[in-house]
Amino acid sequence: MGASPIEGRVTAAADGDVVVFLIGMRVNRWRSVRHWAPVFGAMRRMLTELARDPDAGLLGHRLLTSGPREYTVLQYWESREKLLAYSADRDRLHRPAWAAFNRRARDAAGRVGIWHETYVVPAGSYETIYSGMPRHGLGAAFGVEPVGRRGERAAERLGAAAPAGG
């Protein structure tokens, strides 16, 4: 099941800067369910909250796993300002979840690990292509358009000159 592949070659219809936010957790001790289950549950609730409010700025997300212990959520945001506003908003789920995690972390002794990375990628510094794929990644977050509108080669889509002889 799932989305149907798009015929032909397309690229993400993103304009301007792109904000990529990675957040994850690692279960270090499976038996310590009371330490890692709240983290996992809080992330699901936050993603649901954000999906219900498109103005919050989350454009798309995808759950990634690295084996049975590590979970990452790849997120695309409208702007760094909206990401930071969400994380600081006392009326949203993130602030109380973060405070609760910090309280539990004092007794957790490394039973669960969390991390995040934020990247603000300037316009002209990212490039995408999708062939025979459903909407994916930046294409899912921003929509897609025919490759020719942005350039047939990766170098063109990145705004760089094509290499000599190629």
Rank of each mutant, 00 (worst) to 15 (best):
I129H: 09
I114S: 04
A140R: 08
M46A: 08
A164P: 14
D55Y: 06
P122M: 12
G41Y: 14
V19G: 03
H35F: 15
V27N: 04
H35N: 10
G60S: 10
R153K: 08
W36Y: 04
A161V: 12
L22F: 11
L83V: 02
R95D: 04
V18S: 01
N102F: 07
D17N: 00
I114L: 08
A155D: 07
T48I: 01
P146F: 04
G2F: 06
M133G: 14
R149W: 14
A88V: 12
R95Q: 11
R149Y: 14
W77P: 01
S87R: 03
R149H: 13
G139M: 07
A162H: 10
G143K: 00
T11H: 05
E78K: 14
G113Y: 15
K82Y: 13
R44W: 11
Q75M: 01
D89W: 11
R103T: 06
M133F: 13
T118M: 07
T11N: 02
A161K: 13
S125G: 09
T72L: 12
P54N: 09
L138Q: 00
H136C: 05
G132F: 15
M25A: 06
G124D: 03
M25P: 03
S131Q: 12
L83Q: 03
A108E: 00
R90G: 02
G41V: 00
H61R: 03
P163E: 03
A85K: 14
R44M: 11
V112Q: 10
L58V: 00
R26M: 08
A108W: 08
D53T: 14
R153G: 05
D107A: 09
R111K: 15
V19Q: 00
P38Q: 07
